[in-house]
């Protein structure tokens, strides 16, 4: 990859952390180059003057899609928990949680 990568290996490692992925050193190198190549391609839009255009989050302008406050059936608990990696007393079991929720 002869082009200058727009992101660094450190950024790739940081992003992997945010995404809860672990990369080998080789993967860091490959991803830095590959993501860089994609971002370099995206330079064609980052240089556009798009002032005044409303960002498009949805294809169609629907609004106010609401449902009535009426209860519906819950899942069968045993069926739900059958798909879980670890279960105890009707609950999903996980190991130690380090740190409170933000």
């Amino acid at each position: 990859m002869s082009e200058q990568s727009p992101l660094t290996k450190e950024e790739v490692i940081h992003v992997a952390g945010l995404a809860r992925l672990e990369l080998t050193d080789d993967e860091v190198t490959t991803f830095t180059a590959q993501l860089g190549s994609i971002l370099n391609h995206a330079a064609d839009i980052s240089s556009l003057d798009l002032e005044g255009l409303v960002p498009m989050a949805h294809p169609f302008d629907l609004e106010n899609i609401l449902r009535p406050d009426v209860p519906t059936a819950s899942l069968d608990r045993e069926e739900l928990l059958a798909g879980a990696p670890s279960v105890e007393s009707g609950r999903f079991k996980v190991g130690r949680i380090l740190g409170e929720a933000p």
Binding site: D69, P71, T72, A73, S74, L75, R77, L81, R91, F92
Partner: peptide, 24 residues
């Protein structure tokens, strides 16, 4: 104090058996 949750029809209730007011 709704009858159901914000984004699904599961009951909004306090103190029920665990994982009984749940859906996908």
């Amino acid at each position: 104090k709704t009858e159901t949750k914000l984004f699904c029809g599961c009951r909004n209730a306090f103190g029920d058996e665990p994982n009984t007011n749940v859906c996908p």
